[in-house]
Simulated assay, not measured.
Amino acid sequence: MNIQQLNEMAAAGRINELEVLSLEGGFYVLRAFTGDGPLSLHDEHGEVMRLRSTTEVRQVLADTPTLPCWLVQHVVHDEMCGLRDGPLAPLRVPLSMDRPW
Score class of each variant (00 low, 15 high):
residue 46 G to I: 02
residue 36 D to Q: 10
residue 51 L to D: 03
residue 28 Y to T: 09
residue 54 T to V: 08
residue 52 R to E: 13
residue 18 L to R: 00
residue 13 G to W: 05
residue 63 D to H: 12
residue 60 V to H: 11
residue 28 Y to E: 10
residue 40 S to I: 09
residue 46 G to F: 07
residue 64 T to C: 01
residue 40 S to H: 04
residue 78 D to M: 14
residue 48 V to G: 12
residue 29 V to Q: 09
residue 36 D to N: 14
residue 69 C to T: 14
residue 73 Q to T: 08
residue 48 V to F: 12
residue 47 E to K: 09
residue 21 L to E: 01
residue 36 D to G: 13
residue 17 E to Y: 12
residue 19 E to M: 02
residue 58 R to G: 03
residue 20 V to Y: 10
residue 60 V to L: 09
residue 43 D to I: 10
residue 36 D to T: 12
residue 35 G to K: 07
residue 74 H to T: 12
residue 16 N to I: 13
residue 65 P to Y: 01
residue 22 S to F: 10
residue 36 D to W: 15
residue 68 P to H: 14
residue 42 H to K: 11
residue 27 F to L: 09
residue 32 A to Y: 00
residue 68 P to E: 12
residue 31 R to S: 11
residue 78 D to W: 03
residue 16 N to T: 04
residue 62 A to Q: 15
residue 38 P to T: 07
residue 54 T to K: 07
residue 65 P to L: 01
residue 55 T to G: 10
residue 47 E to H: 10
residue 58 R to I: 01
residue 36 D to P: 15
residue 47 E to Q: 14
residue 59 Q to F: 01
residue 56 E to G: 02
residue 35 G to V: 03
residue 75 V to Y: 15
residue 26 G to H: 07
residue 38 P to W: 11
residue 54 T to H: 10
residue 46 G to E: 15
residue 38 P to D: 06
residue 20 V to W: 09
residue 34 T to S: 14
residue 10 A to I: 02
residue 61 L to P: 07
residue 35 G to F: 11
residue 76 V to K: 14
residue 30 L to C: 03
residue 33 F to P: 09
residue 28 Y to R: 07
residue 67 L to C: 11
residue 31 R to L: 06
residue 55 T to Q: 14
residue 41 L to Q: 03
residue 51 L to C: 04
residue 42 H to R: 05
residue 11 A to R: 07
residue 71 L to A: 09
residue 73 Q to R: 08
residue 30 L to A: 02
residue 62 A to W: 13
residue 10 A to W: 03
residue 19 E to Q: 00
residue 52 R to D: 15
residue 55 T to E: 14
residue 58 R to C: 05
residue 34 T to G: 05
residue 64 T to D: 00
residue 64 T to A: 00
residue 77 H to T: 13
residue 47 E to D: 09
residue 34 T to I: 05
residue 47 E to S: 13
residue 49 M to F: 02
residue 38 P to L: 02
residue 38 P to H: 03
residue 54 T to W: 13
residue 10 A to N: 00
residue 9 M to F: 08
residue 44 E to R: 11
residue 20 V to P: 00
residue 11 A to F: 05
residue 29 V to C: 07
residue 33 F to M: 11
residue 62 A to I: 15
residue 8 E to F: 14
residue 39 L to A: 05
residue 53 S to R: 00
residue 77 H to M: 15
residue 77 H to N: 15
residue 14 R to E: 15
residue 79 E to K: 08
residue 22 S to H: 14
residue 13 G to V: 12
residue 48 V to P: 06
residue 63 D to P: 08
residue 10 A to T: 02
residue 77 H to Q: 13
residue 52 R to G: 14
residue 32 A to I: 08
residue 48 V to Q: 01
residue 14 R to G: 00
residue 45 H to P: 07
residue 32 A to E: 00
residue 79 E to M: 08
residue 64 T to F: 04
residue 48 V to T: 01
residue 65 P to K: 00
residue 9 M to D: 12
residue 48 V to D: 11
residue 73 Q to I: 09
residue 58 R to Y: 08
residue 20 V to M: 02
residue 75 V to G: 06
residue 39 L to K: 05
residue 64 T to V: 00
residue 46 G to N: 05
residue 51 L to P: 04
residue 61 L to R: 00
residue 44 E to G: 15
residue 15 I to K: 00
residue 24 E to I: 08
residue 55 T to P: 13
residue 12 A to L: 05
residue 58 R to Q: 06
residue 51 L to R: 03
residue 79 E to G: 02
residue 47 E to G: 12
residue 66 T to E: 15
residue 63 D to C: 11
residue 10 A to V: 05
